Computed example of a mutant assay.
Amino acid sequence: MIPLVEFCINNLTDEVVAVKKKLEDDSGLDVLEYDCLRYCGICGERPYALVNGEVVKADTGENLLAKIYEAIEEAENHYFCHKP
């Protein structure tokens, strides 16, 4: 399972663009950008992304990057621990 990280174009501040670029350099991830992810309330308040469909939000871009990798690790642990 390749983790999917999705960004809303309306949330791409300079710090979120930097996060997106770092993630795009990670060959183990799929990174996509959409016109709108329909989380407008969050989008207008803080940096966020979707990781495998789950909202990950933070106060800064640096914190967002860390939280994205944490969410990926949690998803992978859950997948491998519950794999039949």
Score class of each variant (00 low, 15 high):
1 M>R: 09
2 I>G: 04
2 I>K: 14
2 I>Q: 11
2 I>M: 11
4 L>N: 04
4 L>I: 07
5 V>P: 03
6 E>V: 07
6 E>K: 11
6 E>G: 01
6 E>H: 04
7 F>V: 00
7 F>R: 00
8 C>R: 03
9 I>G: 02
9 I>P: 00
10 N>Q: 12
10 N>R: 11
10 N>G: 13
11 N>Q: 01
11 N>W: 00
11 N>P: 01
13 T>W: 06
14 D>I: 09
15 E>R: 05
17 V>A: 09
18 A>P: 10
18 A>C: 10
19 V>Q: 05
20 K>N: 04
20 K>A: 03
21 K>P: 00
21 K>Y: 06
22 K>L: 07
23 L>H: 07
23 L>A: 09
24 E>R: 04
25 D>N: 07
25 D>Y: 00
25 D>L: 08
26 D>K: 05
26 D>W: 04
28 G>K: 11
28 G>S: 13
28 G>Q: 10
28 G>D: 12
29 L>H: 03
29 L>C: 04
29 L>K: 01
30 D>M: 07
30 D>A: 10
32 L>T: 11
32 L>Y: 10
32 L>E: 13
32 L>S: 12
33 E>Y: 04
34 Y>A: 08
36 C>L: 06
36 C>N: 06
36 C>D: 02
39 Y>M: 09
39 Y>S: 03
40 C>V: 01
40 C>Q: 01
40 C>L: 04
40 C>W: 01
41 G>H: 12
42 I>A: 01
44 G>D: 01
46 R>M: 11
46 R>Y: 02
46 R>L: 07
46 R>W: 05
47 P>W: 12
47 P>G: 06
47 P>R: 12
48 Y>F: 15
49 A>G: 02
49 A>T: 00
49 A>L: 03
49 A>C: 05
50 L>Y: 02
50 L>S: 06
50 L>A: 06
51 V>N: 01
51 V>G: 00
52 N>H: 08
52 N>D: 15
52 N>G: 10
53 G>Q: 06
53 G>S: 07
53 G>L: 06
53 G>A: 09
53 G>C: 05
54 E>M: 03
56 V>M: 06
57 K>V: 08
57 K>Y: 09
58 A>F: 00
58 A>G: 07
59 D>W: 11
59 D>K: 14
62 E>N: 12
62 E>G: 11
63 N>I: 09
64 L>G: 01
64 L>S: 07
64 L>E: 04
64 L>A: 02
65 L>R: 12
66 A>G: 08
66 A>H: 10
68 I>A: 08
68 I>P: 05
69 Y>M: 13
69 Y>R: 15
70 E>I: 08
71 A>S: 15
72 I>V: 15
72 I>P: 06
73 E>Y: 14
74 E>Y: 13
74 E>N: 15
75 A>C: 10
76 E>G: 11
79 Y>W: 15
79 Y>S: 14
81 C>R: 14
83 K>G: 10
83 K>I: 15
83 K>P: 09
83 K>Y: 14
83 K>R: 15
84 P>W: 14
84 P>F: 15
84 P>E: 13
